[in-house]
Simulated assay, not measured.
Amino acid sequence: MGLLDRSRFDEMSSALGKDQFAMLIELLPASYQEERAKILKAIEDKDHETFHRAAHTIKGMAGNMAAEDLAEYARSLETYDGAFDEEVHASIAELDRLNEQTVAAMHAALRG
């Protein structure tokens, strides 16, 4: 695995056109933050169903954009059934890190 499935990413970029694909990439941070807010609220409310649904949405967004590692990590959160404690907050921090790295990798791939 890796941040991006480059062959799939390049294929999508070619099919949509670089400009159109770049616009989709620009939408990712806001969409991610919206789902992240749902996750944090679910943690606060101890609502596993909403937590899983938001993680599922992130997994789908990432998968659709050829973001392998982010999709895989979100998949692990989609089935998380542990306590909403420090461990889950550390997982969200890792998800944030992967999201930032993925968006940067997408921008770099489009440039290069």
Rank of each mutant, 00 (worst) to 15 (best):
L4Y: 04
R6W: 10
R6G: 00
S7R: 15
D10R: 14
E11N: 10
E11G: 06
M12V: 03
M12F: 15
S14W: 12
S14G: 07
S14I: 09
K18I: 04
D19V: 11
Q20V: 14
F21Q: 02
A22Y: 09
M23V: 07
M23R: 15
M23W: 07
L24R: 10
L24W: 08
I25W: 11
E26Y: 06
E26I: 00
L27A: 06
L27N: 07
Y32K: 00
Y32W: 09
Q33N: 11
Q33L: 07
Q33K: 11
Q33W: 09
E35C: 10
R36M: 06
A37N: 03
K38Q: 14
K38W: 06
L40I: 09
L40P: 01
K41N: 07
K41Q: 15
A42V: 05
E44S: 12
E44L: 00
E44H: 12
E44D: 13
K46E: 08
D47L: 00
D47W: 12
H48E: 03
H48M: 10
E49N: 06
T50F: 00
F51A: 03
H52S: 14
R53V: 05
T57V: 02
G60C: 09
M61E: 10
A62D: 01
G63L: 02
G63Y: 04
M65Q: 09
A66R: 01
A67D: 01
E68G: 13
E68A: 09
E72D: 14
E72L: 08
Y73S: 01
L77Q: 05
E78N: 09
Y80R: 05
G82E: 02
G82M: 03
D85E: 02
V88Q: 12
H89N: 13
I92G: 06
I92D: 04
A93V: 13
E94W: 07
E94C: 02
E94Q: 13
D96A: 02
R97P: 01
R97M: 03
Q101G: 12
Q101E: 15
V103F: 14
H107M: 02
A108C: 02
L110R: 06
